[in-house]
Amino acid sequence: MTLSLWFSLLSACIIISFTPGAGAINTMNNSMRQGWRASIWGILGQQIALLIHVVIVAAGVGILVANSPALFAIIRYAGAAYLVYLGIRMLLSKPEVASDGTTSGRQLTRRAMLNRGILVNLLNPKAIVFFLAFTPQFINADQPLLGQYALYIGTVIAVDILVMYFFFAGTARTFQRFTATYRGAKMLNILFGVLFILVALLLLFLH
């Protein structure tokens, strides 16, 4: 991969990472409820899903998904259903109130955040189709593939981690005082519950 091509890849990754989606919403939710430092586990889960998507595309399975309406629909509905589940769960959850009237919210384990991050990004067939169209632009089939894929996925993941952690999680961190009260935490549950459901609807209808 030439330097100019890599800069094109870098620019594209930055623009894509700043585009709000389910991953960004999940990251902000983790940061506000679990803390900025802990939110890295959800972000790492999302990167594992990105890696799986690229491997799927590299193996050619992405072509099958893109050309099979039934398989695409199954994955699409599964992804939307999971986001709706997360949204409803947040809407119905009740913040845990301490004796002083404040709330720390429901604490998730690192593994729980990691697993949720994986599912949020993995159950999105559009990501497979996107990488199917995006990846070949930066891979030269006439050159050794391993090094190219390593640089490609390394750039994608590095940019996404930096944007998710320092922008989305960092921005959400500034609202933690607001969510320290019962009322604030309840409003947070409603906000992110609605956002997850809206993303699910977009996943279903904007295709």
Rank of each mutant, 00 (worst) to 15 (best):
I48N: 06
A22G: 15
G45A: 05
L50W: 10
L50V: 13
W36G: 10
C13D: 14
M32N: 04
S11F: 01
I43L: 08
S17Y: 03
F18C: 07
N29Q: 13
F18P: 04
S39Q: 06
L50I: 12
I25Q: 14
Q47R: 10
G42R: 04
I14L: 13
I43D: 15
T19V: 11
A38T: 09
S39D: 06
L44T: 14
I15R: 04
G42F: 01
R37P: 07
G42N: 10
W36D: 10
R37V: 05
G42D: 07
A22T: 05
G35V: 00
L50H: 14
F18M: 09
F18V: 12
T19A: 12
N29A: 11
M28I: 02
I40K: 12
L51F: 14
P20S: 08
G42K: 06
F18S: 00
I15V: 15
A49K: 10
G42S: 06
Q47G: 12
G23Q: 08
G45T: 04
A22C: 06
Q47F: 02
G23E: 06
T27G: 13
G23P: 00
A49G: 12
R33H: 08
P20M: 07
A49I: 05
I15C: 06
A24E: 08
G35H: 01
F18Y: 12
N29S: 14
N26L: 09
G42Y: 01
G42C: 03
I40G: 13
N30R: 03
G35K: 06
A24P: 00
I48P: 07
I16F: 05
Q47E: 13
I16Q: 08
A38M: 13
C13S: 14
G42A: 08
L44V: 15
N30Q: 13
I43R: 11
P20W: 01
S11V: 07
A12C: 08
S39F: 02
N26Y: 13
R33P: 00
G21N: 07
G23N: 12
S11E: 09
Q34H: 10
L51G: 12
P20E: 08
I15G: 07
C13G: 09
R33T: 09
P20K: 03
M32P: 00
G35E: 04
S11D: 07
F18A: 02
N29D: 11
S17K: 03
A49F: 01
I16V: 14
G45Y: 02
G45H: 08
Q34P: 00
I14V: 15
R33S: 13
S17A: 15
I15L: 14
G45I: 01
R33C: 03
A24Q: 11
T27Y: 01
N30E: 05
P20H: 03
T27D: 09
S39V: 01
L44C: 15
W41T: 04
S17F: 03
N30V: 02
S31D: 03
W36A: 10
I48Q: 06
N29G: 11
G23V: 02
G35I: 00
Q46E: 11
A12G: 12
G45C: 09
I48W: 02
I43F: 02
L50Y: 15
W41V: 01
Q34V: 00
S11T: 15
I15T: 12
W41R: 08
